[in-house]
Design a protein around this nucleic acid. Structure first.
Lengths: 238, 238
DNA sequence: CGGTATGTTGAGAAGAGTCAATTATGGTGG
DNA sequence: CCACCATAATTGACTCTTCTCAACATACCG
């Protein structure tokens, strides 16, 4: 049982997540199911979007993880945010929008075109809520990078992933699969992989977490959240 | 003459900035002029929005600077982004949105309600472009905090301010008024005020900038941008 | 069974923070 | 015009976190 997402229906991670953001009508679900018939695949390190190029139709991530990334010309690399199943890629209010960051697959990824939402539909609300959560995630990232220590960054980041994955039915209360290396984690958190390694070892020693073979287990997520002063963000009323 | 904003009309910073984002019709301008009749004032350190509370109607910043800010419970403070004249505050696609960050005035601020944009109007496009630029600014902030040294952060930040202020007609090619203290600059850049002080002194010594009495002068903005590898972001085609 | 990607370790250097004192600076009331 | 105050800027000495540059170990893959 997933206490973080009572709406979980096991239909598909993407649908689970969207229906967690707003109640979907049968029509909405049908549109999603229809859209999901035609899936595209991207291999690890492949790009879903390239900075400076036209965005095209918005995509819906179905499986696998991706990241919005920016590179400095001397090779320094920074991830803006992680994109998980159920997340929208390239959703935008503009007329002829350009991507402001490259989106790169961190493992085998599947996506489909996000179906047009009928005005006022639950799906439209879900898209809007998704955008709001995405902005909240950017602000959380800024706070991590600007004002947290390495250990705090790692814990806060993992707690955020756990919450977001749970919406898609991809996390139990304490653990989830994470296809990241210490290197990619470093790129997400503004650290070096060497330092990530040392700090993770410290967290393991202290019994805060386990991380082996692509699976993360947080010993006591609530206690950890309390320890680093993390609060979950609410994005709309009710 | 302001080479950064050829659209500058001297009517008002906010209108200058919006008309720089999309061509405004006479109708749009009239709606803006009408809305700007009723101005609200906020004193320095006053709040325009509070994290977790309902957003209400979107606001248009007319004068003065504000910042989106988040605080950690031990007092650490991080600015997400600066809000300048012509920027929208609390614009959002959602039904009953909550503010995801507090917005605080950094000096005497004036704002008005942002007039509703007619569908398809230039004003609507300007709002959309403004939102896109705001997201780009968040990504730039993440890159600064995650992967730049203190000196790079300061230069990149000042260059961004120059570009944005120029859209509102508030910057010449090399200089602009900046109502920030070294302390607030530190909160924006994830540094301490002591370190900001030392690094700014270094930049002054190297002849990169002057900063005295609330006015910043960048000796050679283009050279500085090249030095730190900064590129201006484009957000839509054409 | 190599080979590549990933994870681990050590020593030393550099960047940034801390704490505390000192010096401008600007605005106020007398 | 000046004394006074609060805020902001500056400086010094010292600490601590994080980075750098290796080298080495392990795991996964065909």
């Amino acid at each position: 049982v997933n206490v973080l997402n009572p709406y979980r229906t096991s239909s598909s991670p993407a649908i689970d997540r969207l229906s967690c953001l707003a109640p979907l009508s049968e029509r909405d679900r049908a549109a999603l199911a229809e859209a999901m018939h035609e899936r595209s695949r991207v291999r690890p390190r492949g790009e879903l979007l390239r900075e400076g190029q036209a965005i095209g139709r918005p995509k819906l991530l179905l499986e696998g993880w991706a990241a919005r990334v920016r590179m400095l010309d001397d090779g320094r690399r920074q991830f803006m945010s992680m994109l998980l199943p159920g997340d929208l890629v390239g959703s935008c209010r503009q007329a002829r929008p350009l991507a402001v960051a490259t989106v790169v697959a961190l493992c085998e990824v599947q996506w489909c075109h996000a179906p047009e939402a009928e005005p006022g539909s639950g799906l439209g609300q879900a898209y809007a809520a998704s955008a709001a959560f995405e902005e909240a995630a950017l602000l959380a990232q800024i706070t991590r990078l600007g004002r947290m220590t390495a250990a705090e960054r790692i814990c806060d980041f993992l707690l955020e992933l756990r919450t977001r994955l749970a919406m898609a039915g991809l996390a139990s209360d304490t653990s989830f699969d994470m296809p990241l290396t210490q290197e990619t984690l470093a790129d997400a958190l503004g650290l070096t992989s060497v330092h990530v390694n040392r700090v993770v070892q410290g967290l393991r020693r202290d019994g805060d977490l386990q991380w082996k073979g692509g699976r993360v287990t947080l010993t006591d997520p609530d206690a950890l959240a309390a320890k680093i002063g993390r609060v979950e963000i609410r994005v709309s009323e009710g």
